[in-house]
């Protein structure tokens, strides 16, 4: 569906995307992960044929986005980061006009709009204005809108940012159904749980370049350990304790508020530490997550 070879985007001297390559297969669910400013949205825009790349080869559905924008976009659904619903129109009208932009017939858009209102659980708000809808409703409407043309591939740029847990779970459920129906999904996110829920394969980008690639499980195996033991001794003591337990686990990370011990058996290591006489204030053994991978690859400092 997508083949990107060494694509780059420069705005003047600023390099937003610095030569990344990846492929997305039909029916796959592909996640682009990275901190703010990593180049995720720019990459999405190039795929969606709304931003021309500076260099590299990019093929979307077998066409070049730089010259075949309308033809590519006719097969894509795009859910932008910010809701950009048409405030001058009502809920159902938003769907109708959007379908008309694709050149669909009046009859086809009417039928499709009703189906999608149902899908987005917005049927009872069909005649409502857009502005009073809740954040979750707006998002669902934006997703419904992106599906008007029954796209082969759906691009979602941070689909659940700013939503409450209930709204996120409803949305994930809807997206999962689309995936089951065979729609190719490409999403960016910086929520690791979202990436784990929705992606078959993930690419981690930082500073415009690819840091790692693989399925969530592969990435965890490769860049983290099976389990993570978190122990706290209080801000003052963490670093002194750390010296005497430095040989425990595969790898350690000493943070101001706690020590992370990456290990294949957290309980065993906790027992070992306690045996040495270091009783932590609190301790936690958990499975390693994509978040650990992400932080390891992109660092803990705030990059913006």
């Amino acid at each position: 569906m997508i083949r990107a070879e060494n694509i780059a985007k420069k705005y003047g001297d600023f390099v937003a995307v610095d030569g990344i390559s990846f492929e997305v297969q039909r029916g796959e669910s592909f996640g682009l992960l990275g901190p703010n400013g990593a180049g995720k949205s720019t990459t999405m825009k190039m795929i969606a044929a709304v931003s021309t790349r500076t260099s590299g080869n990019l093929e979307v559905l077998g066409m070049d986005p730089n010259t075949d924008g309308p033809a590519i976009r006719s097969q894509l659904g795009v859910v932008p980061q910010e809701d950009n619903l048409d405030q001058e129109l009502r809920v159902r009208e938003n769907l109708i006009t959007y379908g008309r932009f694709f050149g669909m017939s009046h009859a086809a858009v009417a039928k499709r709009a009703d189906e999608l209102l149902e899908f987005a659980q917005l049927t009872d708000r069909a005649k409502s204005k857009v502005e009073p809808l809740s954040g979750g409703m707006k998002r669902r409407l934006t997703i419904a809108r992106s599906l008007m043309n029954d796209p082969q591939m759906l691009l979602l740029d941070e689909p659940t940012t700013g939503l409450d847990p209930q709204a996120r779970h409803i949305l994930w459920d809807r997206l999962f159904r689309l995936k089951e129906q065979g729609t190719t999904l490409v999403l960016t996110t910086h929520y690791m749980d979202e990436a784990e829920q929705l992606s078959d394969r993930i690419v981690v980008v930082d500073k415009g370049a690819i840091m790692a690639e693989g399925s969530p499980a592969q990435l965890i195996r490769q860049y983290s350990s099976k389990e993570v033991l978190e122990v706290r001794y209080g801000s003052d003591k963490n670093s002194t304790v750390a010296k005497s337990i430095a040989d425990v686990g595969e790898r350690q990370e000493i943070l101001p508020d706690r020590i992370l011990i990456y290990s294949d058996n957290g309980e065993r290591d906790l027992a070992e530490i306690t045996k040495r006489g270091h009783h932590p204030m609190t301790s936690l053994v958990r499975r390693s997550s994509l978040e650990d991978v992400f932080l390891r690859l992109t660092g803990r400092s705030l990059v913006e």
Partner: peptide, 11 residues
């Protein structure tokens, strides 16, 4: 192979 509801316009 899924075909979108929108027909692709010519270039």
């Amino acid at each position: 192979v899924r075909v979108s509801a929108a027909t692709a316009p010519k270039r």
